[in-house]
Simulated scan of single mutants.
Amino acid sequence: MDLKQIDYFLALAREGNMTRAARQLNVVQPALSMQIGRLERHFGKSLFDRTPHGMHLTPAGRTLLEHAAAIRREVDRTTEEMSRLDGRISGRVAIGMITSAAQSTLASSSAKVAERYPEIRLLVCEGYTDTLVEWVGAGNIDGAFVNMPKVPASLAGHAVLEEDMMFAFGAGNARTFPKRVSLDTVAGLGLVIPSRRHGLRKILDDAASEAGFVLKPRLEIDTLSAVCEIVATTDLVTVLPGVALYRALADRRLQARKIVGPSVSRSVAWVTNPRRIVSAAVTAVVDIIADDLISAASAAARAVR
Protein backbone atom coordinates (compact mmCIF):
# COMPACT_ATOMS: atom_id res chain seq x y z
CA MET A 1 0.00 0.00 0.00
CA ASP A 2 1.39 3.42 -0.98
CA LEU A 3 0.28 7.02 -0.60
CA LYS A 4 -1.24 7.14 -4.06
CA GLN A 5 -3.52 4.25 -3.20
CA ILE A 6 -4.45 5.93 0.09
CA ASP A 7 -5.35 9.16 -1.73
CA TYR A 8 -7.40 7.27 -4.32
CA PHE A 9 -9.22 5.33 -1.62
CA LEU A 10 -9.98 8.47 0.41
CA ALA A 11 -11.31 10.30 -2.65
CA LEU A 12 -13.64 7.44 -3.57
CA ALA A 13 -14.81 7.05 0.04
CA ARG A 14 -15.56 10.78 0.16
CA GLU A 15 -17.35 11.01 -3.19
CA GLY A 16 -19.08 7.62 -3.25
CA ASN A 17 -18.91 7.72 -7.03
CA MET A 18 -16.12 6.50 -9.31
CA THR A 19 -16.60 9.22 -11.94
CA ARG A 20 -16.62 12.11 -9.45
CA ALA A 21 -13.64 10.72 -7.53
CA ALA A 22 -11.61 10.30 -10.74
CA ARG A 23 -12.47 13.86 -11.74
CA GLN A 24 -11.39 15.16 -8.35
CA LEU A 25 -8.09 13.26 -8.61
CA ASN A 26 -7.60 14.37 -12.22
CA VAL A 27 -7.13 10.79 -13.40
CA VAL A 28 -9.04 8.52 -15.76
CA GLN A 29 -11.57 6.18 -14.20
CA PRO A 30 -9.73 2.92 -15.13
CA ALA A 31 -6.64 4.14 -13.26
CA LEU A 32 -8.71 4.72 -10.13
CA SER A 33 -10.41 1.32 -10.47
CA MET A 34 -7.04 -0.37 -10.84
CA GLN A 35 -5.63 1.18 -7.67
CA ILE A 36 -8.74 0.31 -5.65
CA GLY A 37 -8.54 -3.25 -6.98
CA ARG A 38 -4.90 -3.49 -5.86
CA LEU A 39 -5.84 -2.32 -2.39
CA GLU A 40 -8.60 -4.91 -2.14
CA ARG A 41 -6.23 -7.67 -3.27
CA HIS A 42 -3.61 -6.45 -0.80
CA PHE A 43 -6.00 -6.78 2.14
CA GLY A 44 -7.93 -9.72 0.73
CA LYS A 45 -11.21 -7.92 1.44
CA SER A 46 -13.81 -5.96 -0.46
CA LEU A 47 -13.63 -2.30 0.51
CA PHE A 48 -16.69 -1.05 -1.37
CA ASP A 49 -20.14 -2.33 -2.18
CA ARG A 50 -20.86 -1.51 -5.82
CA THR A 51 -24.50 -0.52 -6.34
CA PRO A 52 -26.42 1.29 -9.11
CA HIS A 53 -26.59 4.27 -6.74
CA GLY A 54 -22.87 4.53 -6.01
CA MET A 55 -20.01 3.06 -4.03
CA HIS A 56 -20.55 2.39 -0.33
CA LEU A 57 -17.92 1.39 2.20
CA THR A 58 -18.02 -2.13 3.55
CA PRO A 59 -17.13 -2.78 7.22
CA ALA A 60 -13.55 -3.41 6.05
CA GLY A 61 -13.66 -0.18 4.07
CA ARG A 62 -14.83 1.82 7.09
CA THR A 63 -11.98 0.39 9.15
CA LEU A 64 -9.46 1.30 6.47
CA LEU A 65 -10.96 4.79 6.16
CA GLU A 66 -10.21 5.55 9.80
CA HIS A 67 -6.59 4.45 9.51
CA ALA A 68 -5.97 5.79 5.99
CA ALA A 69 -7.22 9.26 6.95
CA ALA A 70 -4.91 9.22 9.98
CA ILE A 71 -1.94 8.15 7.83
CA ARG A 72 -2.58 10.92 5.31
CA ARG A 73 -2.86 13.51 8.08
CA GLU A 74 0.45 12.42 9.61
CA VAL A 75 2.24 12.48 6.27
CA ASP A 76 0.89 15.96 5.52
CA ARG A 77 1.81 17.19 8.98
CA THR A 78 5.34 15.82 8.65
CA THR A 79 5.75 17.42 5.22
CA GLU A 80 4.54 20.74 6.56
CA GLU A 81 6.82 20.66 9.58
CA MET A 82 9.83 19.94 7.37
CA SER A 83 8.91 22.85 5.10
CA ARG A 84 8.47 25.21 8.04
CA LEU A 85 12.11 24.66 8.93
CA ASP A 86 12.82 26.82 5.87
CA GLY A 87 10.17 29.37 6.78
CA ARG A 88 7.70 28.11 4.15
CA ILE A 89 4.00 27.38 4.56
CA SER A 90 3.08 24.28 2.62
CA GLY A 91 1.05 21.11 2.74
CA ARG A 92 -2.31 19.70 1.77
CA VAL A 93 -5.43 21.53 2.95
CA ALA A 94 -8.84 19.89 2.57
CA ILE A 95 -11.86 21.97 3.54
CA GLY A 96 -15.61 21.93 3.01
CA MET A 97 -17.86 24.86 2.17
CA ILE A 98 -21.61 25.29 2.13
CA THR A 99 -23.06 26.25 -1.24
CA SER A 100 -23.77 29.88 -0.40
CA ALA A 101 -20.10 30.39 0.45
CA ALA A 102 -18.54 28.22 -2.25
CA GLN A 103 -20.54 29.72 -5.11
CA SER A 104 -19.82 33.31 -4.13
CA THR A 105 -16.21 33.87 -3.04
CA LEU A 106 -14.44 30.53 -3.54
CA ALA A 107 -12.98 31.38 -6.95
CA SER A 108 -11.33 34.60 -5.79
CA SER A 109 -10.22 33.07 -2.48
CA SER A 110 -8.62 30.09 -4.20
CA ALA A 111 -6.77 32.38 -6.59
CA LYS A 112 -5.34 34.30 -3.62
CA VAL A 113 -4.22 31.07 -1.94
CA ALA A 114 -2.49 29.94 -5.12
CA GLU A 115 -0.71 33.27 -5.48
CA ARG A 116 0.35 33.74 -1.86
CA TYR A 117 1.11 30.14 -0.95
CA PRO A 118 2.31 28.24 -4.04
CA GLU A 119 3.30 25.22 -1.93
CA ILE A 120 -0.18 24.69 -0.49
CA ARG A 121 -2.25 22.00 -2.21
CA LEU A 122 -5.88 22.98 -1.75
CA LEU A 123 -8.88 20.66 -1.95
CA VAL A 124 -12.36 22.18 -1.51
CA CYS A 125 -15.54 20.12 -1.27
CA GLU A 126 -18.95 21.77 -1.60
CA GLY A 127 -21.89 20.29 0.26
CA TYR A 128 -24.73 20.61 2.72
CA THR A 129 -23.95 21.43 6.34
CA ASP A 130 -24.95 17.99 7.65
CA THR A 131 -22.63 16.23 5.21
CA LEU A 132 -19.71 18.57 5.85
CA VAL A 133 -20.06 18.23 9.63
CA GLU A 134 -19.99 14.44 9.24
CA TRP A 135 -16.80 14.65 7.17
CA VAL A 136 -15.11 16.89 9.75
CA GLY A 137 -16.05 14.49 12.53
CA ALA A 138 -14.70 11.53 10.58
CA GLY A 139 -11.43 13.32 9.85
CA ASN A 140 -11.97 13.30 6.07
CA ILE A 141 -11.37 17.05 5.82
CA ASP A 142 -9.52 19.58 7.97
CA GLY A 143 -12.61 21.67 8.65
CA ALA A 144 -15.63 23.26 7.02
CA PHE A 145 -17.55 26.50 6.68
CA VAL A 146 -21.11 25.65 7.70
CA ASN A 147 -24.31 27.20 8.99
CA MET A 148 -23.76 27.75 12.70
CA PRO A 149 -26.84 26.12 14.30
CA LYS A 150 -25.78 22.73 12.97
CA VAL A 151 -22.45 22.52 14.81
CA PRO A 152 -22.54 19.47 17.13
CA ALA A 153 -21.03 19.53 20.62
CA SER A 154 -18.29 17.09 19.57
CA LEU A 155 -16.78 19.66 17.19
CA ALA A 156 -15.30 23.11 17.71
CA GLY A 157 -17.20 25.97 16.07
CA HIS A 158 -15.59 29.35 15.43
CA ALA A 159 -17.92 32.20 14.41
CA VAL A 160 -16.95 33.75 11.07
CA LEU A 161 -19.89 35.81 9.90
CA GLU A 162 -23.42 36.81 10.81
CA GLU A 163 -25.47 38.43 8.07
CA ASP A 164 -29.05 39.32 7.24
CA MET A 165 -31.02 37.43 4.64
CA MET A 166 -32.19 39.88 1.95
CA PHE A 167 -35.20 40.13 -0.30
CA ALA A 168 -33.92 40.35 -3.88
CA PHE A 169 -35.54 40.98 -7.26
CA GLY A 170 -34.43 41.65 -10.80
CA ALA A 171 -33.41 45.17 -11.78
CA GLY A 172 -36.03 45.01 -14.52
CA ASN A 173 -38.84 43.74 -12.29
CA ALA A 174 -42.09 45.51 -13.14
CA ARG A 175 -43.09 45.92 -9.50
CA THR A 176 -41.91 48.63 -7.15
CA PHE A 177 -40.95 47.52 -3.65
CA PRO A 178 -40.57 49.61 -0.47
CA LYS A 179 -37.24 49.93 1.32
CA ARG A 180 -38.43 47.51 4.00
CA VAL A 181 -40.33 44.35 3.10
CA SER A 182 -42.06 42.05 5.55
CA LEU A 183 -41.49 38.31 5.34
CA ASP A 184 -45.19 37.57 4.95
CA THR A 185 -45.32 39.93 1.96
CA VAL A 186 -42.43 38.02 0.38
CA ALA A 187 -44.31 34.75 0.97
CA GLY A 188 -47.12 35.98 -1.26
CA LEU A 189 -44.85 36.63 -4.25
CA GLY A 190 -43.38 34.27 -6.84
CA LEU A 191 -40.60 32.97 -4.63
CA VAL A 192 -37.46 31.06 -5.71
CA ILE A 193 -35.55 29.55 -2.77
CA PRO A 194 -33.50 26.42 -2.00
CA SER A 195 -35.13 23.07 -1.23
CA ARG A 196 -35.64 21.69 2.26
CA ARG A 197 -32.33 19.82 2.06
CA HIS A 198 -30.55 23.17 2.12
CA GLY A 199 -29.53 24.90 5.37
CA LEU A 200 -30.79 28.28 4.16
CA ARG A 201 -34.25 26.84 3.59
CA LYS A 202 -34.46 25.68 7.20
CA ILE A 203 -33.62 29.19 8.36
CA LEU A 204 -36.37 30.64 6.17
CA ASP A 205 -38.93 28.00 7.14
CA ASP A 206 -38.21 28.51 10.84
CA ALA A 207 -38.63 32.28 10.52
CA ALA A 208 -41.90 31.87 8.63
CA SER A 209 -43.18 29.36 11.19
CA GLU A 210 -42.43 31.74 14.05
CA ALA A 211 -44.37 34.44 12.19
CA GLY A 212 -47.35 32.11 11.75
CA PHE A 213 -47.28 31.12 8.09
CA VAL A 214 -45.76 28.61 5.67
CA LEU A 215 -43.58 29.41 2.68
CA LYS A 216 -44.90 28.07 -0.65
CA PRO A 217 -42.20 28.77 -3.24
CA ARG A 218 -42.82 28.67 -6.97
CA LEU A 219 -39.39 27.14 -7.59
CA GLU A 220 -37.01 25.25 -5.30
CA ILE A 221 -33.41 25.31 -6.57
CA ASP A 222 -30.28 24.57 -4.53
CA THR A 223 -27.81 26.07 -7.02
CA LEU A 224 -27.75 29.65 -5.79
CA SER A 225 -26.12 31.07 -8.90
CA ALA A 226 -29.07 29.68 -10.87
CA VAL A 227 -31.50 31.26 -8.41
CA CYS A 228 -29.86 34.65 -8.96
CA GLU A 229 -29.97 34.22 -12.73
CA ILE A 230 -33.65 33.29 -12.72
CA VAL A 231 -34.57 36.24 -10.51
CA ALA A 232 -32.46 38.63 -12.62
CA THR A 233 -34.27 37.63 -15.82
CA THR A 234 -37.88 37.18 -14.60
CA ASP A 235 -40.37 38.78 -12.23
CA LEU A 236 -39.74 36.06 -9.63
CA VAL A 237 -38.03 37.01 -6.35
CA THR A 238 -35.83 35.37 -3.74
CA VAL A 239 -34.53 35.61 -0.19
CA LEU A 240 -30.83 34.84 0.18
CA PRO A 241 -27.88 35.98 2.32
CA GLY A 242 -25.81 38.88 1.08
CA VAL A 243 -22.82 36.65 0.36
CA ALA A 244 -24.87 34.79 -2.26
CA LEU A 245 -26.22 38.01 -3.80
CA TYR A 246 -23.29 40.39 -3.79
CA ARG A 247 -21.96 39.73 -7.30
CA ALA A 248 -25.37 40.19 -8.93
CA LEU A 249 -25.93 43.29 -6.80
CA ALA A 250 -22.54 44.70 -7.81
CA ASP A 251 -23.39 44.07 -11.48
CA ARG A 252 -26.74 45.83 -10.93
CA ARG A 253 -28.63 42.79 -12.19
CA LEU A 254 -30.42 42.47 -8.86
CA GLN A 255 -31.71 44.89 -6.28
CA ALA A 256 -32.23 44.06 -2.62
CA ARG A 257 -34.33 45.20 0.31
CA LYS A 258 -34.16 44.57 4.04
CA ILE A 259 -36.61 42.10 5.53
CA VAL A 260 -38.54 43.15 8.62
CA GLY A 261 -41.25 41.70 10.83
CA PRO A 262 -39.24 39.59 11.55
CA SER A 263 -35.75 40.09 10.20
CA VAL A 264 -33.97 36.89 9.19
CA SER A 265 -30.26 36.24 9.67
CA ARG A 266 -27.83 33.38 9.34
CA SER A 267 -24.46 32.65 10.95
CA VAL A 268 -21.50 31.00 9.28
CA ALA A 269 -18.95 29.12 11.36
CA TRP A 270 -15.61 27.44 10.73
CA VAL A 271 -15.85 23.95 12.22
CA THR A 272 -12.90 21.75 13.19
CA ASN A 273 -12.33 18.48 14.97
CA PRO A 274 -10.73 19.14 18.40
CA ARG A 275 -8.76 15.90 18.06
CA ARG A 276 -7.02 17.19 14.95
CA ILE A 277 -4.12 19.66 14.93
CA VAL A 278 -4.81 22.73 12.77
CA SER A 279 -1.76 23.34 10.61
CA ALA A 280 -0.29 26.68 9.57
CA ALA A 281 -1.40 25.95 6.00
CA VAL A 282 -5.01 25.42 7.09
CA THR A 283 -4.94 28.63 9.12
CA ALA A 284 -3.58 30.59 6.16
CA VAL A 285 -6.30 29.30 3.84
CA VAL A 286 -9.10 29.85 6.37
CA ASP A 287 -8.00 33.44 7.00
CA ILE A 288 -8.22 34.25 3.29
CA ILE A 289 -11.62 32.63 2.81
CA ALA A 290 -13.09 34.19 5.97
CA ASP A 291 -11.87 37.67 4.99
CA ASP A 292 -13.43 37.31 1.53
CA LEU A 293 -16.76 36.14 2.96
CA ILE A 294 -16.88 39.07 5.37
CA SER A 295 -15.99 41.52 2.59
CA ALA A 296 -18.69 40.09 0.31
CA ALA A 297 -21.35 40.32 3.03
CA SER A 298 -20.36 43.92 3.79
CA ALA A 299 -20.49 44.88 0.10
CA ALA A 300 -23.98 43.36 -0.22
CA ALA A 301 -25.18 45.19 2.89
CA ARG A 302 -24.00 48.51 1.44
CA ALA A 303 -25.90 47.82 -1.77
CA VAL A 304 -29.28 47.50 -0.02
CA ARG A 305 -31.38 50.60 -0.58
Score class of each variant (00 low, 15 high):
1 M>W: 05
6 I>T: 12
8 Y>F: 11
11 A>W: 06
13 A>R: 08
14 R>W: 03
15 E>S: 10
16 G>R: 04
17 N>I: 08
18 M>G: 10
22 A>F: 04
24 Q>W: 10
25 L>H: 02
25 L>S: 08
26 N>E: 14
27 V>M: 07
29 Q>C: 00
30 P>L: 12
31 A>T: 14
35 Q>S: 07
35 Q>G: 08
36 I>R: 00
39 L>P: 01
40 E>Q: 06
40 E>C: 02
44 G>M: 08
45 K>Q: 09
47 L>M: 07
47 L>N: 05
51 T>R: 10
53 H>L: 10
59 P>C: 03
60 A>S: 09
63 T>D: 07
64 L>R: 01
69 A>F: 10
71 I>C: 04
72 R>T: 13
76 D>G: 13
77 R>G: 13
79 T>R: 11
80 E>Q: 14
87 G>I: 10
91 G>V: 15
91 G>R: 00
99 T>K: 09
99 T>F: 12
101 A>L: 07
102 A>Q: 06
107 A>H: 14
110 S>G: 13
112 K>V: 15
114 A>Y: 11
116 R>C: 13
120 I>G: 08
120 I>D: 03
121 R>V: 15
121 R>A: 14
122 L>S: 07
123 L>T: 14
133 V>P: 10
134 E>D: 13
137 G>W: 02
138 A>H: 02
141 I>D: 06
141 I>F: 02
142 D>S: 12
142 D>Q: 05
143 G>F: 05
145 F>W: 08
149 P>C: 05
151 V>E: 02
152 P>S: 09
152 P>G: 13
157 G>A: 10
159 A>L: 11
162 E>R: 15
164 D>Q: 08
165 M>I: 06
168 A>G: 12
174 A>L: 12
178 P>T: 01
179 K>S: 12
181 V>K: 00
183 L>S: 01
183 L>R: 01
184 D>H: 05
185 T>Q: 06
189 L>N: 02
191 L>V: 01
194 P>T: 00
202 K>T: 00
203 I>K: 03
206 D>H: 06
208 A>P: 00
211 A>L: 06
212 G>F: 10
212 G>T: 09
213 F>P: 04
213 F>V: 04
219 L>M: 07
223 T>Q: 15
223 T>P: 14
225 S>T: 13
225 S>H: 06
226 A>T: 13
230 I>L: 09
233 T>N: 10
234 T>I: 05
235 D>Y: 01
236 L>N: 07
239 V>M: 08
240 L>T: 09
241 P>W: 00
244 A>K: 06
246 Y>W: 13
248 A>H: 09
251 D>A: 13
255 Q>V: 03
257 R>C: 03
257 R>D: 01
257 R>W: 03
258 K>A: 12
258 K>M: 15
259 I>C: 00
262 P>R: 10
262 P>T: 12
263 S>N: 09
264 V>Q: 03
266 R>Q: 14
268 V>C: 11
270 W>R: 02
277 I>Y: 05
277 I>K: 10
277 I>S: 14
278 V>G: 05
279 S>F: 06
283 T>M: 11
285 V>S: 00
289 I>L: 07
292 D>Y: 06
295 S>Y: 10
296 A>M: 03
298 S>R: 14
299 A>E: 15
299 A>Q: 13
299 A>Y: 09
300 A>S: 03
300 A>Q: 11
301 A>S: 12
304 V>D: 11
305 R>E: 14
